[in-house]
Design a binder for these strands. Structure first.
Lengths: 234, 234
DNA sequence: TCTATAATTTGAACACTGTTCACAGTATAG
DNA sequence: CTATACTGTGAACAGTGTTCAAATTATAGA
C-alpha cells in the first residue's frame, strides 16, 4: 500500500532519472543511454535504479512516451501560433514544425522513429496512444480543410485503395476518431512523404545531394498540399 | 609485403567473418552484432578477429558497403527483368524492388538507413559511392523517361528551388553524372517519399494505421509517377 | 515517542561486451 | 633449411545490464 507521499517522491526520482538520461543522450547520442552512467550522474548505484524502473527497457519506454508527447506538444503549439485558424497556413506550420522538432531533438526523434537501442522493441500498447496524439494534429487540420472546401482531394489522391479504406474506416469506428477516412488517408500520405525526408536528413543521406534541406523540405510541404488538392495559394 | 596467396586467404576469412555476422544479425537483429559472438561462431578468440578488421566499426562499415551494393544489385536486377526497356513499368518495378529488398533484408536495411549501432557513425567517403550506385538506377530511368517524353515534369514538380538546382548542377558537373538536374530532382523527390513509407513500415508505425502496407506502397508508387508528370498509364 | 513495517540504498557477484598486448605456433619465402 | 612474416592464443582491462541478500533509512500506527 504505497502512500500518497511516498508515491510522489518516487515520481520525483523517476523524473530525475529521466532528466539525467536525456542529458546523457543529448551529449553522447543514443549511445550514451547507459544505466550505469545514469546512476553515476545522480550519485546512485546501478542497482538502485531498479526500484524506479524495472529495467533499462522500461526507462527507454518512458523516454519514448515523453518524446512522443513532446512532439505532439510542438505540433499543437505550431497549430495554435499559426495565423488564421482553419487556414492552410496552419497545416504548413504544423508540417514544418514536425521537421524542426526532429532536427532540434535528434536523439529523441531517433528514439521514437528509429531503432536506436539494440535489442529493444517498444511495447506498442504503451507507445501507440501518444503517436496518435501527434498524428491527430495533422489529420485534424486536414479534416477541417476538407470540410471548409479549401482542400478538395484531387487526382490521383482522390481515390483510396479499397483495402486501405476499409481498414481506415474500421479504425475510425473502433476508436471513435472524429475524422473521415479521406482525411486519414491524406494524412498518412503526407506524413510518409515528409517523414522520408527527415529520416534521410537525420542520418545525413540527403544533405550531400540536395544541399539546403530546409528549402527542399519547405518546397515539398507546399508541393504536397498542392498535389493533394489545395484550392488556395500558400 | 603481403603476397598474393596470403591476401587471398585473408579475404576468405574476412568473408567468413562477414557471413557469420550476417547470420547473427538475421537471427538476433542488429543487436546480435557482437564481436565475441562472431568469434564464437567461427571458433576463434575475439582477439583473433583484429587481424582481419581493425575494430567492430570497421566490420560494420564493410557490412554496410556490402548491403548498399546488394541493394543496388536488387534494383538493377528489377530494371533488367522488367518488361519494356525505357518504359515506366521498369521504373515502377525498380521502386517496388526498393521496398521488397528492405522488407526481405530488414537488418541490412536498418544497418544502412538507420543508426542501429550505438556509437557508430559510418565514414561517408567509404559508404557514399555504393549509395550513389543504387540511386543512379532510379535517376537513370527517370532521365530516360524524360528524354523519351514519356515523363514531362508537371506542376508543382516542374520547378526546382534555385538553391537546390544550383547544388544539383554542381554535383552533376563535379562527379560527371550523365543525368539532368531535373532527373536528379525528381529522383530525390520520389526517393524521399517512398523511403518514408518503408521507414515507418520497418518499425511498425504505419501498419497499424493503414493495414495492407504493400497495396498502399504500390498505390503510392503510381501516384508518385502521375504527380511527377507521367504521360502514359501504368 | 517508541516500535514494527515498509521503502530505499548498498555492495558484491554474474555474465556479458570491445579492445589491447605479449606470446606461442604456423606457414611462407628466400 | 632457416629467417621472417603471418596467424591465433590467453590473459587482462574497463565497460555494460541485471540479480539478490543485507543494511540502512523513512514511514505509519499505537
Amino acid at each position: 500500500m504505497p502512500s500518497e507521499r511516498v508515491e510522489q517522491r518516487r515520481e520525483g526520482v523517476r523524473e530525475e532519472i529521466k532528466q539525467a538520461a536525456r542529458r546523457l543522450m543529448a551529449e553522447h547520442g543514443t549511445a550514451g543511454l547507459s544505466l550505469r552512467a545514469i546512476a553515476r550522474e545522480i550519485n546512485m548505484l546501478p542497482s538502485g535504479l531498479y526500484h524506479y524502473y524495472g529495467s533499462l527497457d522500461d526507462l527507454i519506454t518512458a523516454l519514448i512516451v515523453d518524446a512522443f508527447n513532446a512532439l505532439a506538444d510542438a505540433l499543437e503549439a505550431a497549430r495554435e501560433t499559426a495565423a488564421g485558424p482553419g487556414s492552410a497556413a496552419q497545416l504548413t506550420a504544423v508540417l514544418e514544425a514536425y521537421r524542426r522538432w526532429a532536427m532540434t531533438h535528434p536523439t529523441d526523434f531517433q528514439l521514437i522513429y528509429g531503432n536506436p537501442i539494440p535489442g529493444y522493441a517498444a511495447p506498442r500498447e504503451i507507445t501507440v496512444p501518444p503517436v496518435i496524439r501527434g498524428f491527430s494534429v495533422i489529420v485534424g487540420l486536414i479534416e477541417n480543410l476538407l470540410q471548409s472546401g479549401v482542400l478538395e482531394a484531387a487526382p490521383p489522391y482522390d481515390v483510396i485503395p479499397p483495402e486501405v479504406e476499409a481498414r481506415l474506416q474500421t479504425l475510425i469506428e473502433r476508436d471513435g476518431y472524429p475524422v473521415s477516412a479521406r482525411a486519414l488517408f491524406l494524412g498518412v500520405v503526407g506524413w510518409t512523404q515528409l517523414h522520408g525526408i527527415i529520416m534521410l536528413e537525420m542520418f545525413n543521406h540527403i544533405q550531400p545531394v540536395i544541399g539546403d534541406v530546409e528549402t527542399f523540405y519547405r518546397a515539398q510541404v507546399i508541393n504536397l498540399l498542392k498535389t493533394l488538392g489545395l484550392k488556395t495559394a500558400i
